[in-house]
């Protein structure tokens, strides 16, 4: 195995990789309550009534779903007051997105010292990417994939696991980025054996989440390599870059990724579109972030 970095004090890449794989295995699944709702959403025998009954067990979740349904992002035309109505209005795929958002967002509020993200910064970044993904599709007149919002929200999930490892090897990672001109995710793979992108994708595969979500996480820095779901991967890639460009959840790595020329060309993206999307994203994102922080 080609071990690129072997400076003084460097723990072996194999050791790190084994540690990361263990951390993925033991990474807590969604709260059991959330998983039980997700199972119901995949159950062909479940109907709106049974799903609503289950969601109602958790008053916090019920309140969040109503708030999210009525937010500018999910765009209810008139105020929706009951859970049943919200589920009918959203449909099951959208409901899945809201349940996942409400279930995962609290975990993204802790500070990540390895990536130098303060409390709430990973959540801001993730919500920005989710909202900007939806806004990009609107501005480019692309039919949004029905998992797009969640794909944006979960693209950096792997950072929750990799943070300790990045903290441990921060000096080495920064050296590779600054002196050798590597992108941050390439440096992660070189030093730790796995990038935050792959790590997040592994977690999503372990959770049996739709493949579009693990593809978006795995390839969000290199959409040109994605073998499936390329549309959603490219959109999340641009939304992620825009979040960094606007300084949302930048950390030490934010400005150290490369924009994919292929994605830009394929989407026919222009600077006016980008700036318009940025202006539309901020206020919606702030509203959602407040709801998700609870």
């Amino acid at each position: 195995m080609n071990n690129y970095y072997s400076g003084p004090g460097a723990s072996g890449k194999e050791d790190y990789l084994a540690g990361i794989l263990r951390a993925i295995d033991t990474f807590p699944s969604m709260p059991s309550f959330v998983s039980s709702i997700i199972d119901l959403l995949h159950d062909p025998n479940a109907n709106i009534q049974t799903i609503a009954e289950r969601v109602k067990f958790d008053p916090g979740m019920t309140a969040n779903i109503l708030k999210l349904t009525n937010s500018a992002q999910f765009g209810a035309q008139h105020r929706i007051a009951s859970l049943q109505e919200a589920i009918v209005r959203l449909g099951l795929r959208q409901l899945f997105q809201l349940v996942v958002s409400a279930g995962i967002s609290k975990r993204m509020t802790r500070p990540l010292p390895g990536y130098e993200l303060r409390a709430d910064e990973l959540l801001s970044h993730s919500v920005w990417a989710a909202v900007a993904s939806a806004e990009l599709c609107k501005a480019l007149h692309i039919n949004a994939h029905d998992m797009l919002f969640t794909a944006g929200l979960l693209h950096d999930l792997g950072k929750l696991i990799l943070d300790d490892f990045v903290q441990n090897e921060k000096g080495h990672l920064q050296e590779l980025v600054q002196l050798n001109g590597m992108t941050f995710d390439t440096a992660e793979t070189e030093v730790l054996g796995m990038s935050h992108a792959e790590t997040g994708a592994q977690v999503l595969i372990q959770w049996n989440f739709p493949e579009a979500l693990s593809a978006a996480a795995a390839w969000h820095h290199h959409p040109e390599y994605a073998e499936s779901h390329k549309d959603i991967v490219m959109i999340v890639h641009i939304a992620d870059a825009l979040a960094y460009s606007e300084g949302v959840g930048c950390g030490i790595d934010g400005m150290q990724y490369e924009l994919s020329t292929e994605a830009v060309n394929q989407l026919g993206l222009k600077k006016e579109t980008l700036e318009y999307v940025a202006s539309q994203t901020l206020s919606k994102m702030q509203q959602l972030e407040q709801i998700l922080k609870g």
Binding site: A241, L242, S245, M255, Y257, E258, V264, L269, E275
Partner: peptide, 16 residues
């Protein structure tokens, strides 16, 4: 201060 940019060979993100 500020007005940085992401690594972008196309110059699309010239917002800064």
């Amino acid at each position: 201060a500020g007005t940085a940019r992401v690594l972008d060979h196309k110059g699309l993100f010239k917002i800064g």
